[in-house]
């Protein structure tokens, strides 16, 4: 046993940094989640450096040469208004990332909050909150988003709100189930014996325990969010036409699809690779954050 050192303060930052480094290391060891991480990194970098990466102005129409095939100055060809598809895809990554980010920061806390409260308190709280959750869960999410967007009016912001409103119930369910497994644990009893308020117990003891599975679920959800956003865009209820949103690009390209395949193929591939990447990353995170792996860290 070593004697007391001068550091009695907890060293928090290094601990969480080490954990983050270990998780990334773990993800990179498996090829599938490494691929997910790689695509995500490419997506983020593309969004940040869009003005540098784009070869043309994504809004600039060139009616002299519409529907040009890929190559010849336009990497992925041009659409029906002569706009460069590659540049539009690059700028579209910003919109996709923004949708994912906003939906996640809305959905994660709401789901966690509702689930933790209903799991921890039980009784009436549980009944009321879970029945509300059931109502939201009983609609297919795209249909419910459609209804919300129809009510709120079509725009990107309303699409984000609509997707958020439909994406929280599974997270709440998950957080509740996790909470139920911890609520009778001895460390919760110990916290109650120390006089901790319910809010304190939920925030300090229950939320950290639910967080890994909620993060995994959110990551897996991001694929669905992208697809729903693309679906809404495709139906003309998401981003307004000039905005280079990937789903909206497919929607307008659909009319020329038979003769001009590049109009739908490249946005489709972008949606496919990003949603695949999030799925793979979520799977990898599930392994990386598995409590059984905790002791290895």
């Amino acid at each position: 046993m070593t004697l007391a050192t001068d550091t009695t303060r907890p060293r928090r930052m290094p601990q969480s940094l080490i954990a983050a480094r270990n998780i990334v290391g773990f993800l990179l060891r498996s090829p599938t989640s490494a691929f997910g991480l790689f695509v995500l990194a490419v997506l983020i970098l593309t969004a940040i450096f869009a003005p540098l990466l784009a070869t043309h102005d994504p809004f600039l129409q060139d009616l002299q040469n519409p529907l040009q095939p890929p190559g010849d100055g336009h990497l992925f060809g041009t659409d029906e208004l002569g706009r460069d598809i590659y540049s539009r895809l690059v700028y579209g990554s910003r919109i996709s990332l923004m949708i994912i980010f906003l939906v996640s920061i809305v959905v994660g806390p709401i789901g966690l909050f509702v689930g933790a409260i209903s799991g921890y308190f039980g009784g009436w709280w549980d009944t009321i909150l879970m029945r509300v959750t059931d109502i939201f869960l009983s609609f297919p999410s795209l249909i419910l988003s459609l209804a919300f967007v129809a009510a709120l009016g079509p725009s990107l912001n309303n699409a984000i709100i609509a997707i958020s409103l439909t994406a929280w119930p599974p997270i709440a369910r998950l957080a509740r189930a996790e909470t139920l497994t911890f609520r009778s644990a001895d460390y919760i009893s110990a916290a109650r014996l120390q006089g901790a308020s319910s809010a304190r117990i939920i925030w300090k003891s229950i939320v950290p325990m639910c967080l890994p599975s909620v993060l995994i679920r959110l990551t897996l959800n991001m694929a669905t969010v992208i697809l729903t956003a693309a679906g809404l865009g495709f139906l003309g209820l998401g981003a307004k036409p000039p905005t280079p949103e990937w789903g909206a690009m497919i929607a307008t390209g659909r009319r020329y699809m038979i003769d001009h395949w590049w109009l739908v193929t490249f946005p489709g591939l972008a949606i496919l690779s990003v949603s695949l990447a999030f799925n793979l990353l979520g799977d990898g995170l599930r392994d990386a954050l598995d409590p059984k792996q905790m002791n290895k860290r």
Binding site: A185, Y187, Q194
Partner: peptide
């Protein structure tokens, strides 16, 4: 089972002090 798996010993001991 009686120690929170994600709390350091310092957190375990400082929580009751903060509450009171």
């Amino acid at each position: 089972g009686s120690l929170h798996p994600r709390h350091s010993v310092a957190t375990v001991l400082s929580e009751p002090l903060k509450i009171h």
